[in-house]
Design a protein around this nucleic acid. Structure first.
Lengths: 227, 227
DNA sequence: GTCTATAGCAAGATAGAC
DNA sequence: GTCTATCTTGCTATAGAC
């Protein structure tokens, strides 16, 4: 066995053991000692692969993102309306994340730290973030929605922000199967759809232009401070 | 000296020492040992008053809320336009929180935990939350804005949510004096003002009605699950 | 480069005596 | 209410086997 595949195996073993223990006992109550012991490796070895306990969470994100991508492919094949596709993509996230809700909450809490590489806004999260934004681009482009062109360019990013808001709500949701989050989605998606449709009206043009410009400015990295 | 005032004194001594050390060295780098030592009490005694280090943060929230309330009184005396008052209230928060930005970030991260009493959505946070919502009610009622009556009732709560969004942005803001957050406020407040003004238009009535109904439903506590 | 074993630190938190 | 002593756990460090 080569070193490369050994590395991959050990890494995978550790991350899967960790996810299992997290699911069983929660994040905080699962110690690095327990993960190492259960995986049959030493604590030092676990830290050789993962710089901190937090880093193990990245494996969780990757898995959710992968499952979400698959689920969205079905949505895109089945629905051609803007609101329908948007609803499908967001609810697909809720479905995919459902089994992880109990302990997944813990993860997203840690992600709230802006210093953390786990923050959805961090450079390290860029790949997953951009992949998700691409899903929203597909929501728009595969649909029949008519949009102010300037808004069309920036809307996927705005919808990603909307998803982040839904996730924040999801984290705080204690209802069974996150019913309240689903309700939020069912009721906000039509609103977004209506407003998007109205964005081409002359009266709302300045508003939609300013929204588009704002999103564009915000997604640009902060310019360096002058000397 | 009665036990009651002894309790209050010790409690106050601990929380003030903690806030001072947090300001000097940051939250994470300030240990409970250091707080206890500096306050001249034992670690165990500090834990007698505060169940965890996190609990000490409540003192920070209280202080911010108090300062914010004072700052808003000035705003209300000086401006009669809806957008002007809204801008004033939100920027007052940014001003008041500015000295605490460096270490204050840490606090809000811990507040992201839905289980935590420090979450802005928790029952324990209700007093501060309702006080802030009352500020937004005053923004509306002291102004000349014309609103769909159903929206008027629920808008303060929606504006509080907007403030929470601004706070989230503020937490991630690394620009000097949180310039980016201020820019966000300067640009979103006019948008909110415009949309609020348009809410009475026949064409947007259904949208504003649904927004109001949604806010109302969401602010109602979760109904118990059926048997 | 991959991994084990072990010792030890720092700091949050708790138990139980007074 | 207060203290001392102790526990727990995330994390680091080191020495060395393969």
């Amino acid at each position: 066995m080569t070193d490369v595949s050994k590395t991959r195996d050990t890494r995978l073993l550790i991350v899967e053991t960790a996810l299992r223990l997290f699911a069983e006992n929660g994040y905080n109550r699962t110690t690095m000692r327990a993960i190492a012991q259960e995986a049959g490796v030493s604590v030092g070895n676990a830290y050789y692969y993962f710089a901190s306990k937090e880093q193990l969470i990245q494996g969780f994100y990757d898995r959710i993102a992968e499952l979400h991508g698959h689920a969205c492919a079905e949505v895109f094949g089945a629905d051609a309306s803007f609101a329908g596709r948007l609803r499908g993509v967001v609810l697909a996230w809720v479905d995919v994340a459902e089994p992880f809700h109990e302990f997944g909450k813990q993860f997203f809490v840690n992600a709230a730290d802006p210093e953390s590489p786990l923050s959805p806004f961090s450079d390290e999260s860029a790949p997953i973030r951009e992949a998700t934004i691409a899903l929203f681009r597909e929501v728009i482009e595969g649909s029949d929605v008519k949009l102010d062109p300037e808004l069309r360019e920036e809307l996927p990013r705005a919808l990603w922000l909307y998803l982040m808001g839904v996730v924040l709500f999801w984290v705080h949701d204690r209802t069974a199967r996150q019913a309240r989050t689903r309700m939020l989605v069912e009721r906000t998606v039509p609103l977004i759809g209506k407003l998007a449709g109205l964005s081409r009206l002359r009266m709302l043009r300045p508003v939609s232009r300013e929204v588009a410009a704002l999103i564009a400015d915000l997604s640009r990295p902060t310019p360096a401070e002058g000397p």
